[in-house]
């Protein structure tokens, strides 16, 4: 069975790009969220196997959303999506339980690698 993924990013463009990469490679994108608040809700509804979480977002940023989701489900598998220069945020996310991170602009191989390892 293909893995169910929730994509969180405030930019439609980024979500489309990720969806494209994932769906072409046998993942099932079950939902998209455009901010942290939505991400927490959708996570509750869909219980995805994996979440890709952007860091900079309105309403609730990715790190806060990660913490919220982790507090509800400590086994939640979350990969952070970061831009260059967000090192400290990434580290905070790792501290709070993010399993990996991928750096924008996305490299398809890198994204898949990361997903594969996290799902193992």
């Amino acid at each position: 069975m293909s893995k169910r993924v929730l994509i969180v990013d405030d930019a439609v463009f980024m979500r489309m790009k990720l969806r494209d990469i994932l769906e072409k490679n046998g993942y099932q994108v079950v939902a998209e969220a455009q901010n942290g608040v939505e991400a927490v809700e959708k996570f509750k509804q869909e219980k995805p196997d994996l979440v890709t979480m952007d860091i900079t977002m309105p309403e609730m940023d990715g790190v806060a959303a990660l913490k919220e989701i982790k507090s509800q489900d400590k086994d939640a598998k979350i990969i952070m999506c970061s831009a260059m220069g967000q090192q400290s945020m990434v580290m905070e996310a790792i501290q709070s339980g993010a399993l990996d991170f991928i750096v924008k602009p996305f490299d398809t191989d890198r994204v898949l690698q990361s997903l594969e390892r996290v799902m193992r």
């Binding site: 260059m84 790792i94 991170f101 750096v103 490299d107 890198r110």
Partner: peptide, 15 residues
């Protein structure tokens, strides 16, 4: 070589 956020990467590994 392509690793961009070396700090975070090493942190993740160490973590």
């Amino acid at each position: 070589e392509k690793c961009t956020l070396k700090g975070a990467r090493s942190y993740l590994i160490i973590n």
